[in-house]
């Protein structure tokens, strides 16, 4: 009980902090903020990425949306574990195939079957290059194959790199936005490479629109 209240308070405080620093605005361009089951797949440049998505989701959706995050990052230290597990209710996956005991795809599908929506960063790691996106990992494809009823929504997070460039600790207050594009169409029997290329292209196109 106390734990639940505390984690809700911390969650509200984090969202408030995100708003003070970035005045983040959700732009529902291709989908409406309705309680449909979705995988929001987004670009990844900062540890604050999923906080921004989480902040712009209406509270009812927020409670049912779980970020997919790296266990090797979030399970180091008590505070991080509390925030990762209790506040954001993350699906924590082990990125290293050698050491992992659970299949990340199974973990994510289980979360979907429990009724949750997911926030996924298919680049797999933070993008520190000048390219728009890094090549996507195949997880998104497997989710789309296994649960074709779930909407796959491209989600572009704009400007968070300037707020907190790599290696900096103090965030600089600048305006950010999160734009939700139209869900990917389901094409039956599409192979992995084609699907991933299509997903990447959809997100890159969204980035271009936001920049204009």
């Amino acid at each position: 009980m106390f734990h639940t209240i505390l984690s809700q308070l911390v969650g509200t405080a984090i969202a408030l902090f995100a708003r003070v620093v970035t005045a983040v605005r959700g732009v529902w361009q291709g989908v409406e903020p309705v309680p449909r089951q979705r995988v929001y797949f987004a670009n990844h440049t900062s540890n604050g990425d999923f906080v921004l998505i989480w902040t712009v989701l209406p509270p009812a959706l927020r409670a049912r949306t779980r970020p997919v995050a790296a266990a090797d990052y979030w399970l180091t230290g008590k505070l991080k574990t509390f925030i990762g597990r209790e506040v954001f209710n993350s699906v924590l996956i082990d990125r290293n195939p050698q050491t992992r005991r659970e299949d990340p795809i199974v973990q994510m599908v289980t979360a979907l079957d429990d009724g949750a929506s997911l926030i996924l960063f298919p680049e797999g790691t933070r993008n520190m290059t000048d390219q728009t996106l890094l090549p996507f990992k195949p997880g998104l494809y497997h989710l789309a194959q296994k649960r074709p009823d779930v909407e796959i929504v491209p989600t572009w997070i704009d400007n968070l790199t300037s707020v907190m460039p790599k290696g900096k600790i103090i965030p600089v207050p600048l305006l950010c936005s999160v734009t939700f594009g139209a869900p990917l169409e389901v094409i039956e029997g599409e192979d992995k490479a084609k699907f991933l290329a299509r997903a990447e292209a959809a997100l890159a196109a969204l980035a271009q629109e936001v920049a204009r």
Partner: peptide
């Protein structure tokens, strides 16, 4: 001023090397 500066500096030219200058401006 904080809200205005946040809007203004969102649009200005900046690179990673400006991070300290921006933080000093705000804080």
């Amino acid at each position: 001023s904080f809200a205005g500066l946040r809007e203004f500096l969102t649009l200005t030219a900046k690179r990673r090397a400006d991070h300290w200058a921006l933080a000093v401006s705000f804080f």
